[in-house]
């Protein structure tokens, strides 16, 4: 879907649903996932529809994912950190409830 203009500055790694993704330190989690071809960040709690970022500036909340165990995080606002664990958020998210 997207490509990087400078692929070589991807020196950080995050894990999305178990898969390692190389990304640029300081960029948003959403940018990292989109660059890696992820087009389903979450499913909606009401209808179960797949969603991906719409606004990229923190207003639409369609980029919600679970980051390091915390549900409902806005991927477009949270900067990546090396080793970060990200999970797609299904429905309401897990909130530690299985």
């Amino acid at each position: 879907m997207f490509r990087r203009l400078q692929p070589d500055d991807s020196s950080a790694t995050i894990y999305f649903d178990g898969r390692a993704i190389r990304c640029r330190p300081g960029e948003s989690v959403a940018a990292a996932l989109l660059a890696a071809g992820v087009d389903r960040f979450r499913t909606t709690p009401v209808g179960g529809a797949g969603r991906m970022p719409y606004c990229m500036i923190g207003v639409c909340f369609d980029c919600l994912v679970e980051i390091d165990g915390q549900a409902d995080r806005q991927a477009c606002l949270v900067p990546v950190a090396d080793g970060m664990t990200v999970r797609s958020q299904d429905g309401t998210g897990r909130f530690g409830i299985q």
């Binding site: 709690p45 409902d72 309401t92 998210g93 897990r94 409830i97």
Partner: peptide, 8 residues
């Protein structure tokens, strides 16, 4: 009020 959570 919180966001929707799994039923608990």
């Amino acid at each position: 009020v919180t966001s929707r959570m799994p039923h608990f």
